[in-house]
């Protein structure tokens, strides 16, 4: 009982707060975790800033991830990683046409 009471009342360390924050984005925190998280949240201005930044970064990820799939709308050339090598192109080209040929020769397409 005393130890539980202790858990409730003692504030988290800032480091523990950052861990709980991250975990809260992936799973549901227990009641006592939420309670100590919130207590620390009220008390610590640095952690509040940290949280705001982490949440912003999560939104950046969403935005960038969304843009990843909208790429076909704005053709971007010469970006990171460069192009397929000529060798690979040739190989894929021939594999692809071979596959297409077999496909067309099948009675049912």
């Amino acid at each position: 009982m005393t130890s539980k009471l202790h858990t409730f009342l003692s504030a988290l360390s800032c480091e523990q707060y950052t861990r709980l924050l991250s975990r809260s984005l992936d799973s549901k925190l227990s009641f006592s975790e939420r309670l100590s998280f919130y207590t620390h949240h009220i008390l610590c201005v640095v952690c509040r800033r940290y949280r705001r930044q982490i949440l912003l970064i999560e939104r950046m990820a969403q935005k960038v991830a969304g843009a990843d799939y909208a790429k076909d709308k704005q053709e971007r050339a010469g970006s990171a990683g460069g192009e397929l090598s000529a060798e690979a192109r040739e190989r894929i080209e021939s594999e692809l046409s071979r596959e297409l040929a077999t496909r067309c020769n099948k009675p049912n397409g």
Binding site: D68, K71, D72, A77, S79, A80, G81, G82, E83, L84, S85, A88, R89, R91, I92, E95, L96, E99, L100, R103
Partner: peptide
């Protein structure tokens, strides 16, 4: 081809592997 390659390379950081996966992708797509 180029977009698929960039996507795969961005994830795996390995040129040959990315090229292989582009090829596999196109073949299974067909």
């Amino acid at each position: 081809g180029a977009i698929l390659f960039q996507f795969a390379f961005g994830r795996l950081k390995n040129r040959e592997l990315a090229e292989d996966l582009v090829q596999e992708t196109m073949l299974s797509a067909v």
